[in-house]
């Protein structure tokens, strides 16, 4: 895991666990706010796709875990894809994300990091099972014209399908980001590399 994040041209020290927890909490708060905003915009008809796209960008620039960048090393042990050409999106270019050329030890997980990675995926899997339960219940109620669902829907400004779709979007966003977030949340304060 990298100890530094460069965003908007500024270097952010991510060695303290508190800083990483702040980042993770902020990301999920923003994603939740965006989810609500996008529902108000078009009931997620088109914007649902953009939400998932935005979640991949969060991984790309902040969380990592895939081959493109971010704090967590690639899960699959492969070197990140490096673009020779500039980022094609003006907005992303404006973020001025600078990534130093990584050392080999920053790309490959050693045995402790592999164990952590696997444990984080196990924890994320358990959390996703819990997240699937309400979706299953709502889908079952919707299929069976449940009175409970009718009671619930009378209190929510959306249709059953919209509610289920919202939960699906939130669960997919979690599935894409949760292992990296767990790693960032649980890794203790990082030490100095040159420490005696």
């Amino acid at each position: 895991m990298k100890a530094e994040l460069v965003l908007m041209g500024k270097r952010l020290d991510m060695a303290p666990r508190a800083a990483r927890r702040w980042l993770v909490a902020t990301i999920y708060m923003v994603l939740a706010a965006v989810l609500v905003e996008l529902y108000l915009l078009d009931h997620w008809r088109t914007s649902g796709y953009y939400l998932i796209f935005a979640t991949f960008l969060v991984n790309r620039f902040l969380l990592g875990g895939y081959q493109f960048g971010g704090l967590v090393k690639p899960f699959n042990e492969r070197a990140p894809v490096r673009r020779v050409t500039p980022v094609p999106f003006v907005l992303l270019f404006g973020l001025r994300v600078w990534e130093p050329e990584p050392r080999d030890s920053e790309l490959r997980n050693d045995e402790r990091e592999q164990a952590q990675r696997d444990h984080a995926h196990f924890q994320a899997y358990q959390a996703l099972i819990v997240a699937l339960a309400p979706m299953w219940l709502l889908a079952a109620w919707a299929a069976g014209s449940s009175r409970l669902l009718a009671w619930l829907m009378a209190r929510l400004p959306m249709t059953p399908m919209q509610l289920i779709y919202g939960l699906v979007l939130a669960t997919i966003a979690m599935a894409i980001t949760l292992p990296q977030s767990i790693l960032l949340w649980t890794e203790p304060d990082m030490e100095e590399a040159e420490g005696e």
Partner: peptide, 12 residues
């Protein structure tokens, strides 16, 4: 860490 092929955090 470099000699052992691990991350320096792992040494800690």
């Amino acid at each position: 860490a470099d000699a052992l092929g691990v991350n320096y955090q792992t040494i800690g």
